[in-house]
Design a protein around this nucleic acid. Structure first.
Lengths: 168, 168
DNA sequence: TTAAACTTTCAAAAAAAAATGAAAATTTAG
DNA sequence: CTAAATTTTCATTTTTTTTTGAAAGTTTAA
């Protein structure tokens, strides 16, 4: 396969994966484009490569910066801003995990904590089922949370190492 | 908090979480409703509880069955179908992991395998960056895949156990 | 200063996703 | 068989999400 074709396929696949996981397709595509670019790109270049508008490119790049996946760079003598994506896959994975933890896991745990305090009649099946379900989900969420915390502190390559033996 | 209020909040929160993770909000809400229902519900009841149309309820319940999260049940003497959700949180987590692995991880690995075979000039930075990025993502994806495989075979309660010590 | 280069904003438009509901299909009791 | 009960389908509508692009805002070189 040619590099040009492969690039397009990668951008498309990354966009699709993103959208399946609740990430805006264009944001995932811009991320893909920058990940495979050795050099930082300008807004103009991103717009041209992906055929998107200036406004879209600007907002998407801002979001990627908020996620910690992309950084602004400046070149001496150039007035324009350049955008460069983190390329280390483990660092990328950490960023995503950290952000999603903050944006989604922490808020839902807060709600589950409140819901676990619902009061009612222990003999009422509706109450029992509600309480049990919410409590169990809460426990799972807290375990995911703790595991992520530990994982995020872990060595860069824990994932590529032999963690698998744990489950032996 | 009253049970009725708590139920509504739970359904709302579960729907929101679902939509953040690329799951149709209504599907997540129907799932939430069934998870906290001690008894299997009819399509009519789901429609009424969530104020959704028959068509929507029908398709959503079908999807939940496809995910392995809900099953059809029949009551003797009743002609209608009833829907009952799996309540064990670990089993639910396995179902979701298994489905998403099948629907999203396996396909992307297939594509990454193809893309890793792109040919080009080793001295070309664009080629080098592409190759490295794709290869690294591929490695990570394969490790996630293997870890999920092992996890899915694991004991019901591995997650609630002391897996955390692994990362010590 | 100031004007050109560049970036950001956001109301409006377009596109995508989800929901509706009535007709068609299916099932089953009698 | 047959007709009532129930489920499924899917063209259309509605809602939600995403994108556009031009105007406003900002920065900087001279």
């Amino acid at each position: 396969m040619e590099l040009a074709e492969a690039k397009l396929k990668f951008i498309e696949a990354w966009g699709k994966l993103g959208s399946e996981w609740g990430i805006n397709r264009t944001m995932a595509q811009v991320h893909a484009l920058l990940m495979i670019s050795p050099e930082a790109l300008t807004t103009e270049e991103v717009m041209a490569e992906l055929s998107i508008s200036r406004g879209n490119a600007n907002m998407t790049l801002r979001d990627l910066i908020d996620w910690g996946l992309v950084e602004k760079r400046h070149k001496t003598g150039e007035r324009k801003e350049f955008f460069y994506a983190e390329k280390d896959v483990w660092t990328i994975a950490r960023c995503v995990a950290e952000e999603r933890k903050k944006r989604e896991l922490t808020p839902i745990i807060k709600i589950l904590d409140q819901l676990a305090e619902v009061d009612g009649d222990t003999k009422d099946p509706a109450y029992k089922t509600f309480k049990t379900t919410v409590t169990d989900i809460n426990k799972l969420a807290n375990n995911v949370n703790k595991t992520l915390d530990t994982m995020l502190k872990a060595e860069e390559n824990w994932f590529f190492g032999s963690i698998l033996k744990v489950f032996k």
